[in-house]
Computed example of a mutant assay.
Amino acid sequence: MNVAATAKGLLELTRPANTVAAGVLTFIGAFVAGGAFDQQAATAAAVGATWFATAAGMAINDYFDREVDRINNPERAIPRGAVSPRGALAFSVVLFLGAVVLAALLPPLALGIAAVNLVGLVTYTQYFKGLPGAGNALVAYLGGSTFLFGAAAVGDPLAGGVLAALAALSTLTREIVKDVEDIEGDREEGLNTLPIAIGERRALLLGAAMLVVAVAASPVPYLLGTFGVWYLVAVAPADAVMLAAAYRSFDDPSAGQRLLKLGMFAAAFAFVVGRVAAA
């Protein structure tokens, strides 16, 4: 395997789209808290730490998931031989160190969130992924915490609280749908994910229920007076997309989770609109 192929494989391990998206969500958390531009150094450190931590988590997840991926995702870097398992593990350690260095520059609460998240990323596949619902809940927390982390980095964690909670509920739904999508490989590997434990339809119904709660709670920032009517105008289409995604997941989990991801980003954008309009 040549150097170019290995470099490409290492880049793939980081899931560039996901890591950049995580950094953007952290920035949105700082922006909603009103400190993204007033505290540029802290915001940049938080975004960078999120990128490194997310990339590290993706890489180590692929390391632990290498046998499952031979069935579910044989095109990934480790199963196809672009990166060795040992190389992926070493790469993840370097990325984790980068996250630690940047997180150390942030306020104590943000540093604490980063520490908890790093532990969660390291332990997810090995200890939580195979536990029905537990792995989903951990990933949901990690997804929602990006907003909380960004807000905490600029000194106002409460400003990101509602967004973090809504994002966590939406992420929980998406993770359940993804488990339904991956059920064949997970069963082959002996994992006891939620769809395996309670059945695909029940798992999807539970995920849909969580999403309905998130959508029902989405007007809270308006009701609390945090944002004005423009937030409602922006969040309504996002809610519609996410509900459509939940419905689609029963027939096509792959399409449903992609649509749900789009709806989640639209909802995050609604918070940006709300913040700009309230300025």
Rank of each mutant, 00 (worst) to 15 (best):
N2K: 06
N2E: 11
T6A: 14
K8E: 13
V20M: 12
V24R: 02
F31K: 05
V32I: 13
A33Q: 08
A33E: 07
F37G: 14
F37S: 13
D38I: 11
Q39E: 14
A42G: 08
A44K: 05
A45K: 04
V47C: 14
V47D: 06
G48F: 11
W51L: 15
W51G: 06
F52I: 10
A53Y: 04
A56I: 04
G57K: 04
G57Q: 08
M58F: 10
I60G: 03
I60F: 00
F64M: 10
F64Y: 11
R66K: 06
N72L: 07
N73M: 04
N73R: 15
N73C: 02
P74W: 04
R76Q: 08
V83D: 08
R86A: 13
S92N: 06
L95R: 01
G98D: 09
A99H: 03
P107L: 07
V116T: 07
L118Q: 10
Q126H: 01
Y127R: 14
P132L: 00
P132A: 00
A134P: 03
N136G: 09
L138N: 04
A140G: 08
Y141M: 10
L142G: 02
G143F: 02
F147Y: 14
F149Y: 12
A153H: 07
A153N: 04
D156E: 12
G161P: 14
A165G: 13
A167K: 01
L169C: 10
S170H: 12
T173I: 01
V177E: 02
E189N: 13
G190I: 08
L191E: 14
A197K: 13
I198T: 05
A203W: 03
L205G: 10
L206Y: 09
L206K: 10
A208R: 03
M210I: 00
L211R: 01
V212I: 15
P219I: 01
L223F: 10
V233Y: 02
V233R: 10
A234V: 05
V235H: 05
P237E: 00
A240F: 10
M242L: 15
A245L: 04
Y247S: 13
S249R: 04
D251G: 15
G263L: 01
F265Y: 14
V273F: 04
V273P: 11
R275Q: 14
A278C: 10
A279S: 12
